[in-house]
């Protein structure tokens, strides 16, 4: 199948702004967008800069905006995007971040925010003799959050981050959930306090964009809502949004004819 791969180019060493360059490629039927880019890079234009490694959606290197939506290049089949020969596929670097070159985004702010939520286990009390005893169901639930490969797609397309760079953004919040939900981590109080400050869980606009673009099933927004519920439950209610939610819930509960 033949496609026209239209790739965003930007070279900081030149005076120009970002522009597009189109590569006409002949691809096998089951090619991914990453396959197409590797072909362009290897055989046509070595100056194209991009990140990639595992090509099996586990390293997170190849997140990019394909036809306007953040995705993993290696998990996006060209045949799903293209309906006729010679059709254009648009490839750009992930959003909400500056570009280093071509498709290579500067993820400093992304990593900074992940670090901000103190993403390491804070165990409390004496260490058990062997492993902590924890229920399998809990580990399964956390493995779902652990599925996150830190590719940046959710942050790229987060609609709040677009207007407010201080939002901690989905990836860091999903990561925080992984600890709040972990019975071995005892820093829940500190974590929830921090997460309910400005830029935390209450600043999510519940648009589901992060859930939509995440191809690893992490569903960041679901984790954010779970954090909200835990925060309220644990008494972290000193935020205007939390008070609105509590009020609203009570109102609806009272108004209901059901015995709820």
């Amino acid at each position: 199948m033949r496609i026209n791969l239209k790739v965003s180019r930007y070279d900081p060493q030149s005076d120009g702004d970002a522009h597009y360059q189109t590569y006409s490629l002949d691809l096998p039927h089951d090619a991914t967008v990453l396959d197409a880019l590797i072909q362009a890079h290897g055989y046509i234009d070595g100056s194209l800069a991009l990140r990639y490694s595992c090509r099996s959606a586990v390293c997170g290197s190849c997140a990019m905006r394909i036809d306007g939506q953040a995705r993993l290049g290696c998990k996006t089949k060209v045949v799903d995007l293209v309906h006729q020969e010679g059709q254009e596929v648009l490839v750009e670097p992930i959003g909400n971040m500056p570009t280093i070159k071509d498709l290579v985004a500067d993820m400093e702010s992304f990593w900074g925010k992940v670090r901000q939520v103190q993403p390491w286990l804070h165990p409390a009390g004496p260490e058990p003799e062997r492993e902590y005893l924890v229920p399998h169901a809990t580990m399964l639930d956390l493995a779902g959050a652990m599925n996150c490969i830190m590719c940046g797609a959710c942050v790229s397309d987060c609609t709040v981050l677009e207007v407010d760079p201080d939002f901690v953004a989905p990836a860091a919040l999903a990561k925080a959930y992984r600890f709040v939900g972990d019975p071995r981590d005892q820093a829940d109080g500190d974590r929830l306090r921090a997460l309910t400050e400005y830029g935390g869980v209450w600043d999510c606009t519940r648009c589901n964009m992060c859930v939509e673009v995440c191809q690893k099933g992490v569903a960041p927004m679901d984790r954010i809502l779970a954090l909200r519920r835990k925060a309220i439950e644990d008494g972290f209610q000193d935020h205007i949004a939390a008070r609105h939610v509590i009020e609203f819930e009570e109102q609806q509960r009272k108004a209901s004819w059901m015995g709820v």
Binding site: P123, E131, L133, P135, H136, M139, M146, F179, D182
Partner: peptide, 20 residues
């Protein structure tokens, strides 16, 4: 392995909560 678990690895578990 125990150390990895204590660092927070979400190992799958047996019924009794031990590492499967």
């Amino acid at each position: 392995i125990i150390e990895l678990e204590r660092m927070g690895t979400v190992f799958s578990r047996r019924e009794d909560g031990r590492i499967a």
